[in-house]
Simulated scan of single mutants.
Amino acid sequence: MTSSQPPARPTPGPAAVPVPWTLVAGLSALALLWPLTGLTGALGTGAPRALAIIGITAAVWIGVVGLGRVPRPVLTLTLTGLAYGLVAHTIGLLVPVLSGFGGPGDGPAWTLIPALAFDAMWGALAGVVAAGVQRLRGAGR
């Protein structure tokens, strides 16, 4: 016995929604704040500068993803954190070479993995907050 109804198509779930890679790339470009503020002297030096950059970056990430209703905010910002770390590491390798103050490999290579893990965890935390912002705004409606 055959059915006259066509076979049911699977409905796309959350895993079927692609990661917004251009957004990930754009948000990870905020890693450029480190050398820009260092070169210009903006935001001071030391811990106040670091805290200001971290605060600005977190606010932008959470604001853009949370208020922009980006799908899969935790995954998106986790990948953004990872990309941020890669951009920061690349800048850390290039800036000394371009300015004549050393060369690649001057720092310990083993620090890359823990730094990327920290940046990914920071991104995941921002993603959880952005998901909360989306829920508060009713993004699922």
Rank of each mutant, 00 (worst) to 15 (best):
L86C: 15
R69V: 00
T40I: 06
V74E: 04
I53S: 05
V133M: 06
G55D: 09
W110C: 01
G123W: 06
L43F: 15
P10G: 01
P73L: 04
A59T: 13
P108N: 15
A8E: 10
L82T: 05
G123C: 05
L75N: 02
S3M: 08
I53T: 06
A25C: 02
G85H: 06
G81N: 04
I56P: 05
V128R: 07
V128A: 04
A47E: 14
R49T: 12
V87N: 03
A120Y: 10
V128F: 05
A117I: 12
T37E: 09
G127K: 09
R141D: 12
A8P: 01
R49I: 09
A42I: 11
P48F: 05
L98G: 11
G66W: 13
W21T: 06
V87I: 15
A124Y: 14
T22Q: 01
L23D: 06
V128D: 00
V17F: 01
T57A: 05
T111F: 07
Q5C: 00
T57P: 07
G102V: 13
G132A: 03
T37H: 10
A120F: 03
I62Q: 02
P10T: 14
A130Q: 07
R135L: 09
A59G: 13
A47D: 08
L30R: 09
G138H: 06
A109V: 15
S4R: 12
P10K: 12
A50P: 01
T111G: 09
V129E: 02
L33K: 11
V95S: 14
G140M: 03
W110D: 08
G46Q: 05
A16R: 15
G85D: 10
M121W: 05
V65S: 07
I54H: 10
W61I: 05
P48Y: 12
L86M: 14
A47V: 15
A47H: 03
R135W: 15
S99T: 14
G13K: 01
L77W: 07
T111Y: 04
G103V: 15
H89I: 08
V17W: 01
G127H: 08
P12S: 09
T45L: 01
P20Y: 00
D119E: 11
L39P: 01
P10S: 09
L75Y: 04
G107I: 07
P6C: 02
T78H: 01
I54L: 13
V95K: 14
A109C: 00
V17P: 00
Y84G: 11
